[in-house]
Design a protein around this nucleic acid. Structure first.
Lengths: 243, 243
DNA sequence: CCTTGACTATTACGTTAGGTAATAGTTTAT
DNA sequence: ATAAACTATTACCTAACGTAATAGTCAAGG
């Protein structure tokens, strides 16, 4: 398939497909002898995923990060797209209900129905899950290399330090995630990861934060140090990366 | 209310409010002696309308045109917002249904559920209706001035010419709206409006096209020349302004 | 009264995701 | 061979803010 055919089938512009090629989001299957872009069924399959993720207001950069993952799983993706679209649909229903009230004569000004944060949070969690959990990322590779050199004694030290940090988080979780203590622990945790696992900038740390509550294994493991500790760590990290 | 308070209540940025002031979309009620923007209840009311229209993917320019209308009617607006939001919600339901199929194992690639044209059409019709029908626009004023000088004889000539054009449209409506004949009639119609009523560029003509089918009085009047003539004229004009 | 932190303003530059148009090579049907 | 439709690349522009620097204002506490 040539470019106009694809553009027409999907109802997007040729320019859009050029742009997607340019940013390596969707490259054509091949370039023919005339220099024309040739797309195939796999191209369309990927393009449909892009359309779903655009529908969910992911940026192209985010979409690229998600789709570039070697272990991207279409069936798992459909489940997640649905979950997010249902949230989006339900939000629209709330706005429709608000309008029904106004049509009936209600006068009270309200803005909370426009709130998008629940969907944004779920998106961030999905993105983090895809990028982190399904592995094959740079960080995962780096971590593998680094940890493969550790001795048993070394591991004992790491686990001890890990426990201390998590215990500390658990001990102060009645305080605010924004508290000085919590923020210092976040810094400590970040340094821990950098030291023993992989380079962890704030973007990575943010992804991890979401993962601690969205991945059942992480959550279960962390909450052994105290109920709701994973949530508290997540909140503390999110506050940290915002400031 | 000062700017941060508004921004926080509505969950938008201070920068956004600055920008809305800059483009005269939402000016503060007053500027105090320190140079601070002060907003009031009316500001919030207008801001809520802006949020609804943004939710419906209207550009800020479009939103401004709609809200600047002297006869903007809040209750009528709520009805229209609801109608459009229901369309938008229903489109999401279609996408969710598509995903259900894929989750169940269906393999057939489909892009038609992403189609936005119905909603876009309804938006254009709403915008046209607000701008044209509720009057007090520049064109309306110009038309009033121009037509107030016409004699009875003059009106007879205008009505005759009007009838001829509409009859012609009705006569060729088995042909394509893109046909040479139809396109020539569009040009003739445009010239007619320019000559006897007001300056009519392609943007205005496009708005009129939508109005001919969305406004019951126009539609009824035009269809006296032949069933579905209003729709045919609309289609012909839309083709014309696209080329 | 002074200080400090939170609030406010304006200015300026940058970003994302294309839209638009010019220029030129390629393909296809007549 | 010709013309129209297809394709490509290049270049500039847009909308709607986000980010940051700089500086004035306000309010509470010392």
């Amino acid at each position: 398939m040539q470019i106009k055919e694809v553009a027409k089938l999907v109802n997007i512009s040729v320019r859009t497909l050029h742009y997607y090629d340019e940013i390596d989001l969707l490259n054509p299957k091949k370039i023919n002898s005339s220099g024309y872009r040739i797309y195939d069924e796999d191209s369309l399959k990927k393009l449909q995923q892009i359309m779903f993720l655009k529908e969910l207001d992911f940026s192209l950069k985010e979409i690229k990060a998600i789709l570039d993952n070697d272990k991207f799983d279409y069936n798992k993706a459909f489940l997640n797209h649905k979950s997010l679209l249902v949230k989006k649909r339900d939000r629209l229903n709330k706005l429709i209900n608000l309008l029904d009230k106004y049509i009936e004569g209600e006068n009270k000004m309200s803005f909370k129905e426009f709130d998008n944060s629940e969907i944004e949070k779920a998106k961030k969690e999905y993105e983090a899950e895809v990028i982190q959990r399904w592995g094959n990322t740079k960080a995962y590779k780096q971590s593998k290399e680094k940890t493969s050199t550790y001795t048993k004694e070394h591991w004992k030290i790491i686990q001890k330090e890990n426990k201390e940090i998590f215990d500390s988080f658990a001990r102060i979780k009645e305080k605010s995630p924004a508290s000085k203590e919590a923020q210092e622990l976040v810094i400590k945790w970040k340094e821990f990861i950098n030291k023993y696992y992989y380079d962890c900038d704030n973007t990575m740390l943010e992804s991890l934060a979401h993962l601690y509550i969205s991945d059942e294994r992480f959550k279960k493991n962390i909450d052994k140090h105290g109920e709701n500790t994973a949530q508290f760590i997540c909140d503390s990290i999110l506050h940290f990366v915002k400031n």
